[in-house]
Nucleic acid binder design. Sequence first.
DNA 1: CGGCATCCGGGAAGATACTG
DNA 2: CAGTATCTTCCCGGATGCCG
Lengths: 228, 228
Amino acid sequence: MKLEKRTRSYNDACGTAHALDLIGERWALLVIRELMLGPKRFSDLKADLPGISANVLTQRLEGLEATGLVRRRRLPPPGVAQVYELTDWGYEAEPIVQALGRWATRSPAHDPRLPLSATSLMLSFRTMQAPERVAGLAATIGFRIGDQHLVARIADGRVHTERGDPDGADLILTGAAEAIAALVYGHVPLEALTAAGALTAEGDTALAATFATLFPLPPKVGSESVAQ
Amino acid sequence: MKLEKRTRSYNDACGTAHALDLIGERWALLVIRELMLGPKRFSDLKADLPGISANVLTQRLEGLEATGLVRRRRLPPPGVAQVYELTDWGYEAEPIVQALGRWATRSPAHDPRLPLSATSLMLSFRTMQAPERVAGLAATIGFRIGDQHLVARIADGRVHTERGDPDGADLILTGAAEAIAALVYGHVPLEALTAAGALTAEGDTALAATFATLFPLPPKVGSESVAQ
DNA sequence: CGGCATCCGGGAAGATACTG
DNA sequence: CAGTATCTTCCCGGATGCCG
């Protein structure tokens, strides 16, 4: 284990270029994305980042820790596990994640049916919500995705998402993130997903249809923009 | 010339991940940044991107053209040159460039005295302007940076930047982008820069000091955020 | 000169196996 | 569970050279 010389830099005073020096390496921003809802353990990060290898994840975490975006913390006695969490500055990267996400959904090549992590799904709710559709609504929807428990709270004209106990929510959806994405973004009816065994719904199942209207996708890039 | 198999993908339905599939390769976003103010020729791109090699620039332009972000256009007869320009969708990436730039200026490692392109400087004015400081002002500042002519128009509570003829501006600054950055972000007085021969000012030179107050940098990340 | 293709060396990423 | 070690592959960066 030798001291690394610093990663090759763009050597550019432009803030954008410096940002790429910090988080431009492959996987770096997706690691940050996965920590956006709170601390995670190494193995959870690895499981939620389809395709990353252990050594690359180790390198990214080391790098992000060195630049002050990620902090390593040992959990209190009950569990011996250690977790990685974003620093305040790390959390401030959320607008970047959102700007990228919003922009890329216009891509003709974007396939919303690919694998999806629970964190990505929750962040997409933050990004894609349409204020004029959310206005006046009040509800709480709980999610059980694998062993992750999450909540979307609709209030004050905004959809708030966070980790939390789904119990007591008006509607609780249990299933894979991809199935919930099919409901919200693919506009597959809840009944079709429950019938297929992809999703389980408890509570106010009619709420699901309303929820699915809150996150309209921007129009795909049309031929007028791409053709020469 | 064989058909390339498409670049390795994150294979993730998350919009952020797809954005990285599109513009996550090294240099890609900086190429887009350099085209943000309008079309450029290959050699201008190469000159304005310190450190990029010709073959990598070729690859990036091919890739960006294939994804529909960049268009290649042959200029009308007077010049045989061809230029690269962003598509509408490509221009829509500006919020990404801005989010990255704004976020990265908080980095302790950010050195604003590194080389800087004229385009980066103009975009930084868009990004970093403080509306409460711009309010009520009206002025036009012209820039001659190398052979590039640019204008910043202060009106309607906003700073607008674009390519344009500096003649007739209230103040015209001639010099390297780094010198103008020293004025605006380094708060080096205009007199010091003109005395050193780094900058030439014509017109309302007092305007320079006002202009330099319009773009406050956010506070650097402090020890409270980085320390464990 | 502008716009590439080609070859090469170094280094980062990916896959797998292995260890405390 | 949380990484390390090793090997292979591929990308990046630099140099050169071709061709209009």
